[in-house]
Nucleic acid binder design. Sequence first.
DNA 1: CGTCACATGGCAAGCGTTTGCCATTATTTG
DNA 2: CAAATAATGGCAAACGCTTGCCATGTGACG
Lengths: 346, 346
Amino acid sequence: MPRSRASSQDRSGPRRRATITDVAEAAGVAASTVSRAFTRPDRVNHRTREHVLAVADELGYAPNPAARALESGRTNTLALLVPDISNPYFSGVIKGAERAAAAAGMVLVLGDTQENPATEEQLVRRLGPAVDGFVLSASRLPDDELLRAAELNPIALVNRATPGVACVVADFDSGTRQIVDHLASLGHRSLVFLGGPPESWSGARRWFGLQAAAEAAGLTATRSGPYSPTLGGGPAAADAVLAAKATAVVAHNDMLAIGVMLRLAERGVSVPGDVSVVGFDNIVGSDFCSPTLTTLAERTEDAGARAVEAVVAQTVARSSEPPTRVLPTQLVVRRSTGPAPVRSTA
Amino acid sequence: MPRSRASSQDRSGPRRRATITDVAEAAGVAASTVSRAFTRPDRVNHRTREHVLAVADELGYAPNPAARALESGRTNTLALLVPDISNPYFSGVIKGAERAAAAAGMVLVLGDTQENPATEEQLVRRLGPAVDGFVLSASRLPDDELLRAAELNPIALVNRATPGVACVVADFDSGTRQIVDHLASLGHRSLVFLGGPPESWSGARRWFGLQAAAEAAGLTATRSGPYSPTLGGGPAAADAVLAAKATAVVAHNDMLAIGVMLRLAERGVSVPGDVSVVGFDNIVGSDFCSPTLTTLAERTEDAGARAVEAVVAQTVARSSEPPTRVLPTQLVVRRSTGPAPVRSTA
DNA sequence: CGTCACATGGCAAGCGTTTGCCATTATTTG
DNA sequence: CAAATAATGGCAAACGCTTGCCATGTGACG
């Protein structure tokens, strides 16, 4: 015997939501016709459709996505997982993803993994059945885990590459070359890289690229760290820079770079007079810190958008070899870099 | 005759996901028992439960949220709508909301309304059936629209108040008083407020509070604008400040304040020597711009979290009068404010 | 005027869960 | 030891929607 959940007399709570049956009744047609009026315009008479839509609107009807998902298997929802929502770097990715998702008629679910692989895995598992696919930005998951997840869901990675999984990455090879060339053209003969979190894939790529570019340009590159990729990582990094008597430093990201500049100012070191500083990401703030920061701009919005598109494409048809997209990077030269100081030949 | 959707032979695509029936079969129990093993631990024998859970884990089973939502009417999902995801101010709200949602076992769906009431309304309507409730941050929706939406869904507002809808707002009365008192104690006799978007509820509250506090403290307050609440709004606002020969300005938010300082520096005006500048929000960057910015800090993370809690509470039981929570604000004094310049009595 | 094709709408099954109710099997009690 | 009670698990309906298939009505064509 049927339970009665929502009886006719409404509680004081939320009003009952109109269902497809309500619309069908009110419009004097079958539920299937209402359904088709929404999803298959060509399967129903034009006039009928108009009428149904009008009635639906009047009743404030919106199809229940859960019910729709159940039958069709498609949720029209995508999940975007980022290590830290409040990190301005990811704002661009989020915004781009949001835009692309909306354009594809999809809703975006956002998840914060808190830089934690376990949290990330749990989110993927839990959200899995609820979404049509995932965009994993700067994923901290090991390769095998990623592949396992990719078996069950369409997935695209941002700034992380794993064979067999679609991904969109920034062109760090070109980017680091631009940085090194810029520094070289200013007369610097060496640079020190201030590393970020050891598990960071893009951190590794950055250091790798810098080394290669430095070698090509005849500079020496050394690495220091790891440091926290935040303002708070600045003091330690800056002190290391001074101890190393570096003339040019490249920081893991802008926040660290700015933190370094803050500390250098505190210690009376001039930027770029004594030391040139370069960051990665071109975040909001790199344009108004002091001095303004020379940094490698990635197209983060594009990255988010492309990744969403890649996922959407997979939901339609799984291609044999998932694509890798490389997005150009561009060095934004501002005030934090300048000619190498003339060294006393002591 | 039933359609055959996923036949036994798997396509090369995503593997079929285990359902509750698969688990039931594999465990040799009924589906209802599996269901209860997950949701009603006390309704099933301990040993049975263990076994079911083990089998489920082995099969990689996760309950399908859509199906669950359909029957139970609860989606365990909350939507958070913000005017602009990439605005760092909202990062705090998002983070807090995300945290509180996770703590309540809920998933957060994020929506960007692009400062557009129409987009916002559409999102509310579309997401409505898919979520258990909404947090609307700095909603641009008119009151009646808000009330209508609140009839259908549990809703909590952040920094926006509408009678009959739960909300959490920053204590702008105290905040603006802190600002005015601070300025007064530095010898300023007047201030100019640089307004933001006219539809902004908090903008109105800020100006209102400033006026009241100024009157109480014997200062004169004038308003200028509206300006774009971004760096780009800075030049126009700064020029207006200079034209007005103001000694103290309070900007609608930090981005505008920083934009103003940038322009003032460009025009050779000293901050705080000639003009003191105050912002609102205490965003990332207000601590490293130059000079560092005196600003009113809101507890944005708290706001997000409280709002989520308010929504969750409503999903359980609708209280008669929805609560209003006022969160304290605190003036963070940095380098952009200083003693009023001694005026030539020309 | 009969036949056929096509356009349109309805029927009903089924998507994966939850849950009210009942049947069965312990377990306790008098 | 019978009867009452509690614990446990199963059955089947229902949630709101989509969709394969079929029935009906219409116009075109011979």
